[in-house]
């Protein structure tokens, strides 16, 4: 399967197989006017299978979303057909407005205009807790 190389934009690589659609939705890529390719189940030497997203526009994206969904991801920035930057994304220390706390006693359920923030408390087990009430993040 061939997908054209991009001249200026982003290639989000090493997404675990099946994670591409979740990232596509969380980044709101369906709202973009430019070409976006979501390639699923690409054979990979390191991962067996992986997903890749190509965005044909040089834009800023929320790297925390990527790290949370698929922590071994890489983001390549392409300019004039050349890779000018490669970032390895790990688990973010904080997630802001990505998850919503499900604790009914948490202040985030009633306070208007509040940012939903989760902090990483155990990187090995990938456990995040609500900054406000310490409730565990929903799986």
């Amino acid at each position: 399967m061939n997908v054209d190389a991009i001249r200026n934009g982003l290639v989000i690589d090493h997404i675990h197989a099946g994670g591409g659609m979740q990232i596509y939705r969380m980044l709101g890529l369906d709202a973009l006017d430019c070409s976006v390719a979501l390639i699923r189940n690409v054979p990979s030497r390191k991962m067996g299978r992986k997903d890749i997203i190509k965005i044909d526009a040089d834009m800023e994206i929320d790297l925390d979303v990527l790290g949370y969904v698929s922590p071994n991801i890489t983001v390549n920035r392409i300019r004039n057909g050349e890779r000018v930057e490669k970032k390895h994304i790990g688990l973010p220390a904080r997630l802001t407005d990505i998850l919503i706390c499900r604790n009914p006693r948490c202040i985030t359920t009633t306070e208007q205009g509040i940012r939903h923030i989760f902090r990483l408390v155990d990187a090995e087990k990938r456990i995040y807790r609500c900054l406000y009430c310490d409730a565990k993040a929903p799986d």
Partner: peptide, 22 residues
Amino acid sequence: QEGAPLVAAMRSSVPVINAGDG
């Protein structure tokens, strides 16, 4: 409600002491 004093501290111009949140 749990976390309310933290929300208060984020906005307050004076020190906030949590006297119990849920």
